[in-house]
Design a protein around this nucleic acid. Structure first.
Lengths: 220, 220, 220, 220
DNA sequence: TATGAATGAGATTTCATTCAT
DNA sequence: CATGAATGAAATCTCATTCAT
């Protein structure tokens, strides 16, 4: 006869962990099912089956189907936000090196979340205004390290004074392209080739003539 | 006694015209409604109301809801295919000029079909394999003039020997970006600025040092 | 400039003939389509196509879909009513011979209208009360010659004094059975065998011992 | 902490019982509504209302509307199959007694399922090939006890050597006739009269002269 | 916490019927 | 007389969500 109506701190923590684990369980299943069928084709029953839980339980952890979608997309965007800066920090202080590392990691994350990335484009419109705003915000946020590298490079005159806003979004577009046009690119390039080619494309515009020899390998 | 129950050529023609007009009427409405609500949120009743016809009539001209979607997307892709080459022909033979004109027109068409372009990305996955294949085919087809300009420019050594396949799809990505990221770009650039900036981005990579002064205006 | 707004008798007759021909054209098509698909599965468009007329025209000759059904069923029942007595008259006055000839012809008509007969059973309930009453009436009417032969045979003591009402309907049931259970009977008996066997079944009960040798062939 | 989320045998049994009860609830309603309106006129909403459940729930227990029809018909045929032999066993070993008891019970079941029996004839064609095959199979199966009695009677020479196949189906036809022609028979005969008359009809053909006095009561 | 039976609104699609030509 | 485009009501079926257990 264990009673658990008085919530001890330990039990709270246990519950929080279980809650997170349940949410993750459902979100993983959501990505899996949505990549197969798309959001609208995914029934809550199918999601529950994939996640190995009951339909009713999903409603304990999410507000509804659209909320699952929002959470799924946010999870993906979180990955970009959280993994980009560490990868750039690992290569040191040189703005060009940082940018190159950032682009590489960005495209790698896209590759690791191929279907989820496409999902972001396909289903954003499904969300309500608040959800869409949150996504845009996260996308801008996640691109901040790239923006910082460009600003630093331009300030240090190792990059041409390009329009930073445009360049950041162009880089993201080219990265997302690996998923959006994977039916085309995936057939003719390996991931590494794609990264190398797109990086060269960007550096060609960025690196001024007097510094090009420093990055000969990247520009060849 | 005059009988006119035979299908005279004139009547056939009249019917064909009416059929086309009805289809266009519905497809225009489809773009309109889908831009507001997305494909899955669009009910056939809402489509019928927007088109000013009855629900039943839509099924006379289209096989079903998905067929409306396919036809809508194909209509948009047709615009790209049909309008790109004429715009490029209008500027003469110089490969660079042709490419610049092509990019301009491409982005302009995207601008004229902002919502429809997004539709192409968002709803392609909804179609069956045959429909998706048809779309990819048309996209490749529509990009042929750009590809030709690149090939010609490289052959004439007025462009660097870039990877043509990648460059063509990158250009399309950047063009589509005007629609895909319009929530961002639309707020900070005019259409002309966007065209100019993206054109410069591409030409920076394409034009070899010894020819850059010829296109100074485009590269500044 | 032929005017036909004053209806001359000749033209009236022409019209009546054409009307009948059109109705027959549609009814023949109706039997054909209904035997393939059933009444409810038959669309007016399919009926029109089969009849080689337009949908609209059917409504000039029939009140609606249900009216087509009623007319179709009545046409079949008319065949029974009109063809039974002549076949019985052809064999002379002997009540037993007349009954045998009637049964033979009845089952033959069923065989000639296999699907239409089944239709009668399947779709009667679809009709309104008036239509159903009309059908029952016609069925009773069409059985009158059989009833007369039984009455005559019993009066002349060449048949046992069976319950005439029951016997008439039993004979009809056994005749209809050729259509209703054709999936079974059709596979193991020829039409003639079926007729001979069912006739013997009925005569076994009807013919008194002292007359059986007169009909030895039928009873063997 | 007691958990009961495992599917205990008890719970499985409870569910099975509930499933059966729900199915029965819907099937009873189906017979009720179809007898009023016919299968095609019956809307799923009307069926749900009659059964006292929601439309959606019907689809949990049946594959669709046609599946409801098939299940309804099969339920009726099951009654024939399951109730015939016991009734015949109850009267002992005499083949004639067994046959008579079988006919009586057969017609009684028809009487107890008047509308359902008509349904079997009216709506079989609506089913797909598999469903129709299943029905024919069950009908043959359900007649097996009658067939056995005839075979035994003929072997024991207490019955004339009639065509057994035909006789079995004729008996079924006459039994079904109580439902098919109830608009006629029902008005002039009681159930018992109908049974007695049809039994006499059959026995007249079956019982040879030398045994007729044993069954005088049935033959009078 | 967890289940899944039950609901019922809403979706797509069909088709009998009408009517302008 | 003849057509068939157009209508729109009604049908089947799905599925997000709730709630008693």
């Amino acid at each position: 006869m264990t009673t658990d109506h008085d919530a001890l701190p330990v039990e709270e923590a246990v519950r929080a962990v279980r809650t997170n684990s349940r949410r993750k369980q459902v979100l993983d299943a959501a990505v899996e099912v949505m990549q197969r069928t798309g959001f609208h084709q995914m029934s809550m029953q199918a999601l529950a089956d994939e996640a190995g839980v009951s339909v009713g339980l999903i409603y304990k952890y999410f507000g509804g189907k659209e909320d699952v979608l929002l959470a799924t997309i946010l999870t993906i965007l979180d990955a970009f936000r959280d993994q980009l800066e560490p990868a750039m920090d690992a290569v040191g202080d040189d703005p060009v090196e940082r940018l190159v590392a950032g682009m590489r990691r960005y495209i790698e994350i896209v590759d690791e979340n191929l279907n989820a990335t496409v999902l972001t484009y396909r289903e954003s419109r499904t969300l309500d205004a608040a959800g869409r705003a949150r996504i845009k915000e996260l996308e801008v946020e996640s691109s901040a390290p790239l923006r910082a590298a460009l600003d630093a490079g331009i300030a240090a005159a190792v990059m041409n004074p390009v329009d930073v806003d445009l360049m950041v979004f162009d880089i993201m577009l080219l990265a997302h392209g690996w998923a959006l046009k994977h039916w085309h690119f995936g057939a003719i390039y390996s991931l590494d080739e794609y990264i190398r080619l797109q990086t060269r494309f960007v550096l060609n515009t960025l690196i001024p003539a007097q510094h090009r020899e420093n990055y000969a390998q990247l520009l060849s």
